[in-house]
Amino acid sequence: MNERQRALLERLAAGEEPGAWAPGEWHSVYALRDRGVLTVSKSGGDVDVEVTEAGWFYLRHGRHPDDLACGQQRSGGVRRTFGADERGSTARSDGSKADFVR
């Protein structure tokens, strides 16, 4: 998330109504929506923007709850390790392992 997006998320969380935004802020709104930190609904001429749980988490902790840089693994992920003999194992996100030889 860039600085402009973070600032917009903070303003919306503080209660700013969607409307007369600076040029380009709709792009930021849609980028924040795509990151899962906002929901956006339009009905007629009305726009409703709401900060999601992930958005509140980001504002409290400075990172998205699914941020892999903090050591969390997304569900369904697979990590592979290899030894000197090219024998390895696959560690699945459910904790099970499957051995294989390359």
Score class of each variant (00 low, 15 high):
Gly83Lys: 13
Pro23Ala: 06
Gly62Thr: 10
Ala13Pro: 02
Phe82Glu: 08
Pro65Trp: 00
Ser89Glu: 13
His64Thr: 08
Ser43Tyr: 09
Leu12Arg: 05
Asp66Ala: 13
Thr39Pro: 05
Leu59Ser: 04
Gly71Gln: 05
Gly45Pro: 04
Cys70Asn: 09
Pro23Trp: 08
Arg79Leu: 11
Pro65Glu: 01
Glu3Phe: 03
Thr81Asp: 11
Leu9Gly: 06
Arg63Thr: 09
Ser43Val: 14
Ser75Phe: 11
Arg102Phe: 10
Gly71Tyr: 03
Ser28Ile: 02
Leu8Ile: 04
Asn2Glu: 13
Asp46Gly: 05
Pro65Ala: 00
Leu9Trp: 06
Arg11Ala: 15
Arg6Phe: 09
Ser75Val: 09
Asp46Arg: 14
Arg35Asp: 13
Ala22Ile: 05
Ala13Glu: 15
Arg80Leu: 15
His64Phe: 07
Thr81Cys: 10
Gly24Lys: 08
Leu59Ala: 04
Gly88Arg: 02
Asp94Val: 07
Ala31Val: 11
Glu17Tyr: 05
Ala14Gly: 08
Glu86Met: 12
Glu3Trp: 02
Gly83His: 09
Trp26Asn: 10
His27Asp: 14
Glu3Ala: 12
Arg11Thr: 11
Ala31Met: 09
Trp56Thr: 04
Asp34His: 13
Glu17Cys: 07
Gly19His: 00
Glu25Trp: 04
Val51Asn: 03
Ala14Ser: 13
Trp56Ser: 10
Asp34Leu: 03
Gln5Tyr: 05
Phe100Pro: 04
Asp48Cys: 07
Ser96Gly: 07
Arg87Pro: 02
Ala7Gln: 14
Gly36Phe: 02
Glu50Trp: 06
